[in-house]
Simulated scan of single mutants.
Amino acid sequence: MKPVITISYCPKCGWLLRAAYMAQELLTTFEEDLAGVTLQPAEIAGSYQIRVGEDIVFDRKREGHFLEIKEVKQLVRDKVNPGKSLGHADRKPAQ
Rank of each mutant, 00 (worst) to 15 (best):
L67G: 06
L75Y: 00
C13M: 11
I44Y: 03
K61V: 12
Y48N: 07
A94C: 06
Q49E: 06
K70F: 01
L75P: 08
P11A: 09
R18W: 11
K2A: 03
E63G: 01
A45T: 14
T29Y: 01
T6F: 00
T29P: 02
I7F: 09
D78V: 01
A89D: 01
T6W: 02
L17E: 13
I69Q: 04
A94D: 07
Q49S: 02
G87R: 04
E25F: 02
E25C: 01
V52P: 08
V72Q: 05
R77Y: 03
R51C: 13
R77L: 06
M22N: 10
P41D: 04
G64W: 10
T6M: 00
P41H: 12
K84V: 01
A94N: 15
P41A: 08
H88Y: 11
I7E: 00
P82M: 04
E54K: 09
M22K: 05
H88M: 13
G36M: 13
M1W: 12
G87H: 07
Q95N: 13
E63R: 14
E43M: 15
Q49F: 04
V57H: 02
P11W: 02
F58A: 12
E63Y: 09
G87W: 01
C13A: 14
G87V: 03
Y48P: 10
G36E: 10
D78A: 14
I7S: 00
V76N: 07
S8K: 15
T38S: 12
S47A: 11
A45E: 15
K61H: 15
L86P: 04
L26N: 02
A89N: 04
R51H: 03
Q95A: 15
L86Y: 00
C10V: 08
E25Y: 06
Q49R: 13
Q95E: 15
V76R: 04
Q40I: 01
L17H: 14
H88E: 14
D78L: 15
F30S: 03
R60S: 09
M1E: 15
G53T: 04
Y9S: 00
K84P: 01
V57Q: 07
V76W: 01
K12E: 10
I56C: 11
E31W: 03
G83R: 10
C13I: 06
